[in-house]
Design a protein around this nucleic acid. Structure first.
Lengths: 369, 369
DNA sequence: CTGAAAGCGCTTACAG
DNA sequence: CTGAAAGCGCTTACAG
């Protein structure tokens, strides 16, 4: 069937095409092939398939039959070119080795696919130039929309997106000064909450390990931490350790943990860092949580498997993905007027990796005895 | 600059286009805009940009200047339509929640992007119909190539791919009976090795937990296990537990582990299952490895963090991605004649989660004492 | 080497 | 409701 149709499709061609190899296969059937087989105009086929214009019963059936017989599938390149937009959405995240981003991409891919869209997936590595290039690539495909987790210096990327007329939803990290829809979670509140609880347990020397200090989320978390410190009225030192390369983390953290007096609680910004920090702490023969407490943003699948079980800030990943898709779809359909900024709540989950600090527990014991 | 150019670009249009909203932005500049600004034919612009035909110094410079001034970027939809192929490659994996697939996708995305290609990423969930649909979508974009980790019943998908003239590389799971290039690792050997070492430690009752029995890789692993059992000359029972849903794993495994006599070593087929198995074992108040040894295919980042540290079969993920890209590129460039089947080696890494079985260690102790 | 023109496979006003 | 035709933004033989 397919063979016959394909042969037929070649007949009308003005120019002969050389076969593309020893085993050249049949060209995919086009709308012209369908029209010819059904005995209608190509426009009619298009109308039937898209429901643009009602088409009479008989002709309609013939078109559908021809489509089925040929196994016709519209060429999205042609369709996109003509419609000036294709049913592809791009999603740009820094990396997928971080559990949170992997989950975000997977959830988004699932939701978008269910909606008949396709996902083009690019990695920005939190590098401004890479990010700009990758998003530029997406734009060359005239994607229908873009979901972006912006990096540390997203201005070039965001300017480019703003100039294109592409619907955009910014996710996870707010993009100040731009009018895009946003889905984030409240990093400030999450960090404030986490810090308050650490201080409440008696911790007075905190260390926050981040990949990039400049990131909006990092800034927000630092603010949350400072708020909690001020609010506590206690003498609390809160230091930041920036560590762009995961490989460095171990040695950098080792140095930080040999300081006198030593931080008693370490907060890290993602699951990869959490793994590295646990390794570093073990390598130093420190005990967690007896010597040092550990808390991580991002909830990896192994959080409850390690010992001590890992305390985390759990992001509402699926909700973020779902909301991002909803907002994007709304814009893509043109029904969006007002800018939407959705801020979800994250949840602090304390597990065994967080406990009273060494001194505090001594004190507590003294008081208790 | 951009503003002026965009205005210019609208002048020549035959049909007026209604602005697409209150804040309609400028259309992206096209090759026609560039040609007009440079005062050359569009074909010349194309020739300069693609190097198809040498273009004289002056005109060349003018084109390049115009491109820069307008910030022109070729429309990949048009280019792809005309060239009958676009610089996009599709990658289809069952899911990304499994660390191995996530790593594979990330590595591949990185390598392909470096090569100037874009990656469209679809998830098949190991479901035949979904797989077929997702790959069909890829094909509608006339992607330049497809990397596929085939699911349990890949025939419809593979037939479809074979009929299209799209370059394909099958990865991780061999596709018997099809002529595609393949990059796999030797599951049989890896499992044989693992099984031999377990038997060597004294294990006589093995349990292999798989998501889908029908998968080629599963079959190969089972073969490897049986070979090892036969080769050992010992009385070894090797059972298979199929568990398609992760949620079920805990209860299914609990049942299997209360059998009398109980399996002393459990092998699971991926990292997600490993996490679930650890949880199940703990929930049953069994000790690992004292009561039951555990070994997983796939090396998650947390393998050395949990206690006991997790024994694994470590796949050569980056090598697989790199090789897949190499083979795909070769086919996309048309320089491929012979079918290539690359089989890499996986490595069995025994850690604390594997030890002598209860009885054997008793025996050993008796002998020792 | 250069320009004018055909054509990739669609959609969409426009006449009938 | 239907068909013929223009056009989306490119590439690529084809004359000059």
């Amino acid at each position: 069937m397919v063979g016959r149709a394909a042969k037929g499709s070649g007949v009308g061609r003005k120019r002969e095409q050389a076969p593309e190899g020893p085993m050249a296969t049949r060209r995919a059937p086009t709308i012209t092939d369908v029209a010819r087989l059904a005995g209608v105009a190509v426009g009619t086929v298009s109308n039937v398939l898209n429901g643009t214009v009602p088409v009479g019963g008989d002709r309609r059936d013939r078109v559908l039959a021809a489509v089925a017989q040929l196994g016709y599938r519209p060429n999205m390149l042609a369709q996109g070119l003509r419609r000036r937009r294709s049913p592809v959405v791009g999603i740009c995240v820094p990396r997928t080795s971080v559990a949170y981003f992997a989950a975000l991409v997977e959830a988004f891919e699932e939701i978008a696919s269910d909606g008949g869209y396709h996902v083009m997936h690019v990695l920005t590595h939190d590098a401004a130039e890479l990010e700009r290039q990758r998003v530029a690539s997406l734009l060359r495909y005239h994607v229908g929309g873009v979901v972006l987790v912006p990096g540390a210096e997203p201005a070039p990327t965001l300017d480019m997106l703003a100039q294109s007329d592409t619907p955009v939803v910014v996710v996870d990290r707010t993009a100040r000064g731009y009018g895009f829809d946003e889905v984030t979670f409240d990093n400030r509140a999450a960090m404030r909450d986490a810090t308050e609880r650490l201080i409440g347990l008696g911790h007075r020397r905190l260390l926050f390990v981040v990949r990039r200090r400049k990131l909006v989320v990092t800034q927000q978390r630092i603010q949350g931490m400072r708020q909690a410190v001020r609010g506590s009225g206690a003498e609390v030192s809160a230091e930041i350790l920036e560590c762009a390369e995961e490989q460095e983390l171990r040695t950098r953290l080792a140095v930080a943990l040999t300081a006198v007096p030593r931080p008693t609680a370490v907060i890290v910004s993602n699951s990869t860092f959490a793994a590295a920090a646990m390794r570093a702490i073990r390598a130093m023969k420190l005990r967690c949580p007896d010597d040092v407490s550990l808390l991580a943003f991002d909830e990896p699948e192994w959080a409850e498997l390690v010992s001590p079980t890992l305390s985390v800030v759990r992001q509402p990943t699926r909700d973020i993905a779902r909301m991002a898709w909803e907002l994007l779809l709304r814009r893509m359909r043109g029904g969006a007027d007002q800018r939407q900024q959705v801020e979800l709540k994250a949840q602090v989950v304390l597990r065994d990796s967080v406990a009273r600090p060494p001194l505090a527990s001594k004190r507590a014991r003294q008081r208790g005895g």
